[in-house]
Amino acid sequence: MALDLQELRRFVDVVLQSNPGDHFTTLGIAVEAVEHHHVQMSMPYRESLIGDPDTGVLHGGAITALLDTCCGFAAATALDDLGMTPTIDLRIDYMRAATPGKSVIADAEVYRVSESVIFTRALAHHGDVQHPIASAVGNFFRMESALFEEMRREFRRAEATEGGA
């Protein structure tokens, strides 16, 4: 079965927003775009994510979590059907501090898909990719699609129930 990108976007929305108080909502990550081999996400400036109280600059760890999330879902756009892609490894280069008060945008792309590994890279920026805050490369595990059969069934059942209500 071919991957339905609109369904994946709805799935990403559910993962990011349906568990108030989890790490996604603590960071405030939202999906902006889901395309084949590309995902864009945003993270608002929040006081709770500041790493340097003297300057108000966000901690690198929050940027790392945003880039991990964005790369991970970009990897999911390379699957044959709805599924998850565990992170194998991730490297982040910090080019400049995020500007206090500004949202951080992440753009992640898939540049190679092999039998078991999906290779991604990403940039974090404030709207201009020519002035990145950080860049990332991350590799993700492409697991057997059958492992996510139950997850897909549950997600589709919940959507059908909501649609009918």
């Binding site: 989890d22 790490h23 996604f24 901690h59 690198g60 760890g61 790392t64 991990d68 999330t69 991970g72």
Partner: peptide, 12 residues
């Protein structure tokens, strides 16, 4: 746990 929380914990 979120991988980002683990990574952030290690970095911090």
């Amino acid at each position: 746990l979120h991988g980002g929380a683990i990574a952030g914990f290690m970095e911090l």
